[in-house]
Computed example of a mutant assay.
Amino acid sequence: MAQQPQHHQPFSHHIIAGAIAGTSEILVMYPLDVVKTRAQLSTGTAKALPIFGTMKSIVKEHGIGRLYRGILPPILMEAPKRAVKFSSNETYKGWFSRNGKLYQSGAIASGMMAGVTEAFVVVPFELVKIRLQAKENAGLYLNTADAIKKIMKNEGPLAFYKGLESTIWRNAWWNGGYFGLIYYLKNTALPKANNETQEFFRNFISGAAAGTFGTMLNTPSDVVKTRIQNQYATLKPGDVPKYNWTYPSMALIYKEEGVKALYKGFWPKVLRLGPGGGILLVVFDYVTNFLKEH
Rank of each mutant, 00 (worst) to 15 (best):
M1R: 06
M1L: 10
Q3S: 02
H8T: 13
P10C: 03
I15D: 06
I16E: 02
A21N: 04
G22Q: 04
P31R: 12
R38G: 03
L41R: 01
S42F: 08
T43W: 01
T43H: 07
G44D: 09
L49D: 12
I51K: 03
G53V: 04
T54K: 09
K56D: 01
V59M: 01
I64M: 06
R69Y: 03
I75R: 06
L76R: 10
L76V: 10
V84D: 03
S88N: 08
N89E: 11
E90V: 06
T91S: 07
K93W: 03
F96A: 10
N99Q: 07
K101Q: 10
Y103I: 03
G111R: 05
M113V: 15
F120T: 10
V122N: 12
V122A: 14
V123Y: 12
P124A: 13
F125M: 10
I130V: 06
A138Q: 10
G139P: 12
L142A: 05
I151V: 15
M152P: 15
E155Q: 10
K162S: 15
G163M: 14
L164A: 15
S166F: 02
S166N: 02
W169N: 00
R170P: 01
W173S: 02
G180E: 05
I182V: 09
K186N: 05
L190E: 15
N194A: 13
E199S: 13
N203D: 11
A209P: 08
N218Q: 02
P220G: 00
P220E: 00
R227N: 04
Q229Y: 03
N230K: 07
A233C: 01
Y243G: 11
P248K: 08
S249G: 02
A251H: 00
K255M: 02
P268F: 10
G276N: 14
L280E: 10
N289M: 10
F290M: 11
